[in-house]
């Protein structure tokens, strides 16, 4: 599903129902789903434009309109970005602007093997899986057993066979013997990332690789950088990335009145000035998400540790 484009909705797909920028939903295309009490019920999705029997989407073309009882919405092909926008939160998640920078900093390409810890809600995992494709592999670890289990199920439903999710505390137990010298890149989103840097070195290939860590606090970054320097990483670099979205539209302002009366009482265009405005899309914006620290581990024969 998430691995290859297709043109027509089939049973078992996850589709995106797009109503407006702030009304976007991921829906599983099947007859019945579990409701919040765990009982199987008919899969009918309620929107502000009326109800949708999700199963009826089978055979509909991606990118076309779906009829709702009081309107319509677009049925879109699920991308990792739309998934990030709609997924059920089990933790704080990493959003698309940061994900993009992380993927570029990890220097991933199809066929690569990458480690992610923790899995969290699987937001980044979907993007990692897309980038390494089915010829590569994502090993993702979470120390929370339930989270790891639910994420595993989700990856299966989405057909992401290149993702392996495991319940594991990587700070205590590392990434496992079987991954020693096997991976091209390591990503950490942990409370104590500096404690897992040594394990990252073990897992990275002998010809070296990339490392990236996402942390909200500067103290975490400082400790991680310290640890990276000690273990021979180079190109150590910390950035933060914020994305500003604009809303564009016509607006108009009244013209100032100076008491002089003209005969334009009924003519709106003379009393108001119309213009195209570009304003922030939301009144408040994310001022901080996290620091992205990345580094290169050189090949083993030129590594200098201190």
């Amino acid at each position: 599903m998430f691995n290859q484009f297709k043109a027509i909705v089939e049973e078992g797909d996850t589709v995106i129902l797009y109503l407006s920028p702030f009304q976007v939903f991921a829906l599983p295309v099947k007859d019945t789903i579990k409701n919040k009490h765990g009982v199987m019920v008919e899969n009918i999705f309620q929107t502000s434009y009326g109800a949708l029997k999700v199963k009826d989407l089978v055979g509909v073309k991606y990118g076309s309109k779906a009829k709702l009882s009081k309107g319509w919405g677009f049925v879109l092909y699920p991308t990792p970005e739309l998934w990030t926008q709609t997924l059920p939160h089990r933790t704080q998640i990493i959003y698309t602007p940061d994900i993009s920078v992380i993927i570029m900093q990890l220097e991933l390409k199809p066929g690569d093997v990458v480690i992610e810890s923790g899995t969290g809600s699987g937001s980044l995992s979907h993007s990692l899986a897309r980038t390494v494709q089915q010829s590569g592999h994502v090993y993702t670890f979470d120390f929370h057993e339930d989270r790891a289990r639910i994420a595993t199920e989700e990856f299966q439903t989405h057909g992401l066979t290149q993702v392996t999710c495991q319940h594991r505390d990587v700070v205590q137990d590392g990434f496992g013997e079987e991954l020693n010298n096997k991976v091209d890149a390591v990503f950490l989103d942990l409370p104590h990332p500096w404690l897992a840097v040594e394990s990252a070195v073990k897992s990275l290939k002998s010809r070296g690789g990339r490392f990236c860590s996402f942390s909200p606090c500067i103290e975490q970054v400082q400790r991680t950088c310290e640890s990276l320097r000690k273990l021979g990483f180079v190109d150590i670099n910390t950035v933060e990335c914020l994305q500003k979205e604009f809303s564009v539209g016509y607006r108009n302002l009244p013209l100032a009145e100076f008491g002089e009366s003209y005969n334009h009482q009924n003519d709106n265009s003379n009393t108001r000035h119309k213009f195209v405005s570009v304003t922030p899309a939301t009144p408040t914006m994310q001022g901080h998400t996290g620091y992205i620290t990345s580094a290169t581990l050189p090949p083993v024969h030129v590594r200098v540790t201190s």
Binding site: P21, L242, F246, V278, T293
Partner: peptide, 13 residues
């Protein structure tokens, strides 16, 4: 969507 990106680099020593 119309967006602009802001990137800030840090010296961490």
């Amino acid at each position: 969507r119309l967006t602009e990106s802001f990137l800030r680099a840090y010296q961490v020593l």
